[in-house]
Amino acid sequence: MLLIHCPFCDMDRPEIEFRHAGEAHVARPDPATADDAAWGAYLYLRENRRGVFAERWRHVHGCGRFFNALRHTVSDRLIATYRPGAPRPDGGA
């Protein structure tokens, strides 16, 4: 079980307090102008990276808020958590 630092509560809490919410920084294209390929890519194509990966979590059994995290997907080590809107920290390759 992961120990995750909620950047809003400013506490390390066990994974079961959180819900994973998929890849972070997926920009929503303008549906009025996006073609099917761009819209399909937004909905379905994922980086699924083997290495340092930016993802969203929600502290459902805490403050209830979404935030972002950098995690290495082989070691599962959490490198950083940060608030939405903040730039992605440098997490190495």
Binding site: M1, E15, H20, N48, R50, E55, T73, V74, D76
Partner: peptide
Amino acid sequence: DAYNSYSQTGALH
């Protein structure tokens, strides 16, 4: 597991 991973280790819970 609840999150994507290549760890080949599932969570105990």
